[in-house]
């Protein structure tokens, strides 16, 4: 359970690490939107080339990216098999019982797999090279226009930063409680919904008791240090766009233009 996110950020000094977190979030968001428009092998090849270049620029071993893909391996496999067996069309290559494996089915299966993998790689680049607190700061900055319509963006960012800080601690606590319950013969992974619901209650009670105590302690600690209002909070790290970010935005615009050129003129 822990290996999903703990240690996901890997410190470094690569070109991607040095980018402003807002730049990385915008690039990731735009890439995912563009990726959803890919519909032929040329556009998939171009989006794949962009991600591979970014992965290379992060200076991180590929194993880390593979770890990001592992949790959804079975989901990808399930989707690929569905595509293979249920996509109608011609030519039919062979039949498996009532199912037919067709050339369009194989192409669809490959496209779906590539799309899954590329979007996850892109998200992994963001989380591998950006500390969670920087992501919270970037989100606060990017959402700041919503302050004008009354959205408490500063409070949201503060809560997100606290939540990100506490996720590893609470996951550890959850693991400890689960191990304690398992040692008493409890099983969290067998049985139907009712049996598992019964099993989860002894896990939830200590978690909520601990959560309330932690929240009150943290609030006291913040208040005795003079915390009054998230809006008036000062920051240790001030975000500012650098030359490197301008290069990244230029590359992003180039990527999008070339993508639509390929999509429109090379394939129609």
């Amino acid at each position: 359970m822990n290996n999903i996110m703990i240690g996901r950020f890997v410190p470094g000094n690569s070109w991607v690490h040095r980018l402003d977190p807002r730049t990385k979030m915008i690039v990731t968001f735009v890439y995912i939107i563009v990726m959803l428009w890919a519909n032929n092998w040329q556009t998939y090849a171009w989006t794949a080339a962009f991600v591979v270049a970014l992965v290379k620029l992060t200076d991180q071993p590929f194993k880390l990216y593979w770890d990001g893909l592992k949790p959804i391996f079975w989901l990808i496999l399930f989707t690929v098999i569905l595509q293979l067996l249920f996509t109608p069309g011609t030519p039919i290559l062979f039949s498996v019982g009532p199912f037919q494996v067709t050339v369009p089915g194989i192409l669809n299966a490959i496209y779906v797999m590539v799309r899954f993998v590329l979007i996850i790689l892109m998200s992994t680049i963001l989380t591998l090279t950006t500390p969670p607190t920087s992501i919270a700061n970037a989100l606060e900055s990017l959402l700041s226009p919503f302050k004008k319509i009354g959205v408490p963006v500063a409070e949201l960012a503060l809560m997100l930063a606290i939540a990100l800080r506490f996720v590893p601690l609470l996951m550890d606590e959850m693991q400890k409680i689960m191990n304690a319950q398992k040692s008493r013969g409890m099983s969290f992974s067998t049985g139907g919904p009712i049996k598992r619901a019964k099993a989860i209650i002894p896990l939830l009670i200590p978690l909520f008791i601990g959560a309330l105590q932690r929240a009150l302690d943290l609030a006291n600690a913040m208040e005795v240090r003079g915390f009054k209002d998230a809006v008036q909070r000062t920051k240790y790290r001030i975000l500012s766009y650098q030359k490197i970010d301008k290069v990244a935005f230029t590359a992003l615009i180039g990527f999008v233009i070339i993508f639509f050129v390929i999509k429109t003129w090379l394939h129609g």
Binding site: L158, M159, L164, F166, F208
Partner: peptide, 11 residues
């Protein structure tokens, strides 16, 4: 309230 919401969100 802020700290409690944050911690409950993490859970």
């Amino acid at each position: 309230k802020l700290t409690l919401i944050a911690i409950l969100s993490a859970i």
